[in-house]
Simulated assay, not measured.
Amino acid sequence: MKTLKTTIALVLLTFFAFSCSKDEDPVPAPVPPVVLAPLQDPLAGYLAASGFDQKLTNQVNLGDYEFGYSFIPLVNGKITAIVAKIPDVHAAMRVTIWNKATATVLRTETIDIVTAGVEVTKTITALDLVQGTEYFITFNSNDWYDHRKNDSSNVTYPFTVGDIRITSYSFASGTAQVLPSSPQLSYYAGDCSFKFQK
């Protein structure tokens, strides 16, 4: 009987010891969620800052051009998507991201514009951008939106939109994948842009 009482006492003591230690175990702190910086598309801000949002004309089937804008990121970041809208359909429209100083192609993508006048966003493998480096984003098409000020006057670059500084707009004639070399100050032909995340 004495052995049974001792055994029961030991079992109860062990049970209480484990119960107490379990209650005193620290509760792990919740893991904070990863907060990503918001995506930035500088095009609308550029059009507003330049006044090129005042007058819009559709241009359809008017010859092939490689055109776009150059820009400098003010912080390190990455392009995660390309965005395009034109006034006609265009399967596999070529979009190129360049290092402007070296005229080097960093990335070539195609984007399908299946409905005229509807913006399309294509997620891409992230492309790292270095703060202070000048880049160019261009597209090749025979359709575009002609953006101007009401008086068609020239603008003075650059324009800073969020973490992106727009430094110029330029074009080249033809279908060749060449860095545009004819800068224009009185209009922007588009629309092709990107999503940037710092």
Rank of each mutant, 00 (worst) to 15 (best):
T3P: 05
L4T: 14
T6Q: 14
I8E: 00
V11A: 07
V11D: 00
V11T: 02
V11L: 08
L12W: 01
T14W: 01
T14A: 11
F15K: 00
S19A: 15
S21E: 07
E24I: 13
P28E: 03
A29D: 07
P32L: 00
V34M: 04
V34Q: 03
L36Q: 10
L36T: 09
P38Q: 04
L39I: 09
Q40V: 06
P42V: 09
L43F: 05
A44G: 12
G45E: 07
A48R: 15
A49C: 05
G51Q: 06
G51E: 04
G51I: 13
G51N: 08
F52Y: 10
F52Q: 07
D53G: 12
Q54S: 03
T57Y: 09
N58L: 04
Q59E: 15
N61Q: 11
G63F: 04
G63L: 03
Y65G: 01
E66Y: 04
F67N: 10
F67L: 13
G68C: 12
G68Q: 12
S70N: 03
I72P: 05
V75Q: 09
G77A: 05
G77Y: 06
T80V: 13
T80A: 00
A81C: 01
A81N: 03
A84M: 08
A84R: 09
P87Y: 07
V89A: 00
H90D: 07
R94V: 15
V95N: 12
T96G: 03
I97G: 07
I97L: 05
K100P: 11
A101E: 11
A103D: 09
T104W: 01
T104H: 03
L106G: 06
T108R: 15
E109L: 12
E109Q: 13
T110Q: 03
T110V: 13
I111Y: 03
I111P: 00
I113L: 06
I113F: 02
V114A: 12
V114F: 11
T115A: 07
T115L: 08
T115M: 06
G117V: 08
V118G: 02
V118F: 07
V120M: 02
T121R: 14
K122Q: 02
T123W: 00
T123H: 01
D128Y: 07
D128L: 11
V130T: 14
V130R: 09
V130F: 01
V130E: 11
T133C: 04
Y135E: 12
Y135N: 10
Y135D: 08
Y135P: 09
I137D: 11
F139P: 04
F139R: 14
N140W: 04
S141D: 09
N142D: 15
D143F: 08
Y145S: 06
D146S: 12
R148L: 10
R148I: 06
N150K: 13
N150H: 07
D151P: 01
F159W: 02
T160F: 01
T160D: 02
T167R: 01
S168N: 11
G174Q: 13
T175C: 10
A176P: 08
V178L: 14
P180I: 03
P183G: 15
P183W: 14
L185H: 10
S186Y: 15
A189N: 14
A189Y: 05
D191N: 14
F194K: 06
